[in-house]
Simulated assay, not measured.
Amino acid sequence: METPTRHHTATPARRALDALAGNSEDPAALDVLARSDVLVPVPDDVSDADAGHPSTVALPVLQEPDGREAVPVFTSESELAGLLPAVSRYRLVPLGALADQWPTGDLALTIDAASPHGLTITSEGVRNLLARPYEY
C-alpha cells in the first residue's frame, strides 16, 4: 500500500490534526498536539523587547466569521504564510504550555485555520484537552 506524499513531510502536529478531523476526542492525537510547538504570530503593536520576553506571549486575536474571537496558531511557517502573509514575526511555543496559561472567557484557539485539517477549540476545550504544565 502506498502512503500519500503529504504524510512523509507532515509534522507530528499536522498528523494529529488529521487524526482529530476523524475523531475529535482521540486522546493520543490530543496528547501529540499538546506536546507540539506551534507558531504564534506576534502582533504588530508588540515591541521587540516584549516579543522576545521568555515568560510572556502576546496573543493575537482575530474575529471569526461567526463573531467569536480566536487566537490563530500554526503548525508550520507555510501554514502561517497561507493565512497571514503579512506577518513577519512569530514565537515558537509549546501548545500545552500555552493552553496551561489560557485566559478564562470565550477566547477560542484556531490551529491552521486556512487548511483542510484546521481545528478550532473553545476556551474551555483548550484548558481541558490541551493544557500540559510546562517544565523548565
Rank of each mutant, 00 (worst) to 15 (best):
P4H: 02
R6K: 13
R6I: 15
T9S: 12
P12Q: 00
A13R: 08
A13F: 09
R15F: 05
A16F: 06
L17M: 01
L17D: 06
A19K: 07
G22T: 13
N23I: 04
E25V: 15
P27C: 01
A29T: 05
L30V: 02
D31F: 07
L33V: 09
R35P: 07
S36N: 03
P41I: 06
D50A: 13
P54E: 12
T56M: 15
A58V: 02
L59K: 04
V61A: 09
Q63K: 15
E64L: 14
P65T: 07
G67H: 02
R68Y: 11
R68I: 08
A70S: 13
V71E: 10
F74S: 05
S76C: 03
E77S: 10
S78W: 08
G82E: 02
L84M: 07
L84T: 03
L84D: 08
R89A: 04
R89F: 01
Y90E: 05
R91E: 01
L92C: 08
L95Q: 11
G96C: 04
L98H: 01
A99K: 05
A99T: 05
G105K: 07
G105Y: 02
G105V: 02
A108L: 03
D112F: 06
A113E: 12
A114R: 11
A114H: 13
P116H: 10
P116K: 00
H117E: 14
G118T: 09
T122P: 05
V126H: 00
V126N: 01
L129T: 00
R132Y: 06
E135Q: 14
Y136K: 10
